[in-house]
Amino acid sequence: MNILVCLKQVPDTETKIKINSTLAAIESSGIKWVMNPYDEFAVEEALKLRDKLSDGSKVLVYTLGPKARAVEVLRTALAMGADDAVLIDAPENLDPNSVAKALSVALKKESDVGVVFTGKQAIDDDCSQVSQLLAEFLGFRHATVVIKCELGSDKNHFLVEREVEGGSKEIIQIQKPAVIGAQKGLNTPRYASLPGIMKAKKKEIKEIPLSSLGVSDTDKKINFKNFQLPPERPQAKIFEGDVAANSVQLVKLLREEAKVI
């Protein structure tokens, strides 16, 4: 079967966010772009499944974004061991519905898709929507925040574990094909090997223009505006010296000044 992975390139977690002058986006200069951390788990799970099946199944990675930078996230996945990569060349900041629609139209052209892995959310807009929307548009089942994923012995369903509130876990059986949203803990993503990196550099990447996927302006359901940085916090009261006296003082302040206890 074909094992698909949808990837997103996001600013590195160390990025200091600045708002641009239009207030409609962040300042994009100086950003170091990386694979969305949750997508690393998605790639790893796809590779593990392929290797376990070892029946000619292939891992195919997709991304959607501006070609000039987004191609790098595909190279990273190829270097980790993915077989083929497809880039949907698209402008910055499409909304989740438009992204899911574009991906669904492209993915429908792939044959024998058993599973699509994604991250449970991207750490830029933090929307947590594309996986579920993609599943809906493809008519697949879905599970998000997945920490364990096993293909059943009949190869027709997945047994997945997902996190729910309060540290509890749900164990769900879902019939193939499915969209799985990976959570940290699903696996330990591998590092790309040097030969893998060399091979990935030479690999041809298929490109699809967004315009060929029938996505229009009316697919945009949400728009972000009026970006703001969090309000500055007032100067902290810091106590040094006698820790016993300071502990008593802190408890008093939390009760009487901050009124949170």
């Binding site: 600013p11 990025t15 200091k16 966010i17 708002i19 962040i26 750490i123 830029d124 807009d125 933090d126 302006d217 009316t218 697919d219 945009k220 359901k221 949400i222 728009n223 972000f224 505006k225 009026n226 970006f227 703001q228 940085l229 969090p230």
Partner: peptide, 17 residues
Amino acid sequence: RPVYSAKASVEVEFQNC
């Protein structure tokens, strides 16, 4: 809502829905 894990926040405008 917050974006970039609350390093910034945005106003959400709904469209076409």
